[in-house]
Amino acid sequence: MPDPRPLNDEEKATYEWQIWVDDFREAGQEKLKGASVLVSRVGGLGSVVAYELAAAGVGKLVLAHAGNVKHSDLNRQLLMTHNWLGKPRVESAERRLKELNPRLEIVAVSENVSEENAESLVSQADLVVDCAPLFQERFAMNRQAVLQGKPIIECAMYDLEAQITTVIPGQTPCLACLFPEQPPEWRREFPVFGAVSGTVGCMAAMEAIKVLGGFGESLAGSLLTFDLRDMQFAKRRVLRNPECRVCGQI
């Protein structure tokens, strides 16, 4: 976990209201300042994750997202703006995050996570938030996070439903324990409202803040599932797979 970094006066003023959280306090804030988080991608989920982490005072964000802003991004990808249509998404994200928090260090990579770049991207962070739509990207990040012993927050949604869990390598199920292979029916495009991906994004950011700050009870070993169509929430117990190809030997 990250080395805490002392706060300056501006930071103490900025984070005053969250430092009032009893089991977080200034010591928790110093841990966030010393922390780095990889967010991939910064779309419907990742935009909100990155924005909340920037607001909360995480010291460094590594953002990975390919492509340029399109009209169909703008119902949910809150770091993308109309005046940035046709220009790189990751630059829009960096610009918007810096407007909120100019102290934030950002490594902006205009690629999606792949088998080729996952090792390097994960090595630059203390924790990973997986917001990618394709299972190949998610499996590459999961493998590297497990190999490098870094927590990974797994979030997903479809229609008005969502799933979120926190992976602590060697202690909880990893993504490959839950989904040992590429789901045959999964397609990149799916129905989504921004309010659904944004809800999951806020929850994932809070999971990251708890794990980095060392307080509260995370979703380690549990899968939160919910459906905003009827507001049914369930916290379910998930199992490690002793034969998992990624974490079975850890």
Binding site: R41, G43, G44, L45, G46, D130, C131, A132, P133, L134, F135, R138, C155, A156, M157, Y158, E161, A162, Q163, F179, P183, W186, R188, F190, V192, S197, L223, T225, A234, R236
Partner: peptide, 10 residues
């Protein structure tokens, strides 16, 4: 019995 469909991010 709940059958959980694989879903993803985005």
């Amino acid at each position: 019995v709940t059958l959980l469909s694989p879903i993803s991010g985005g």
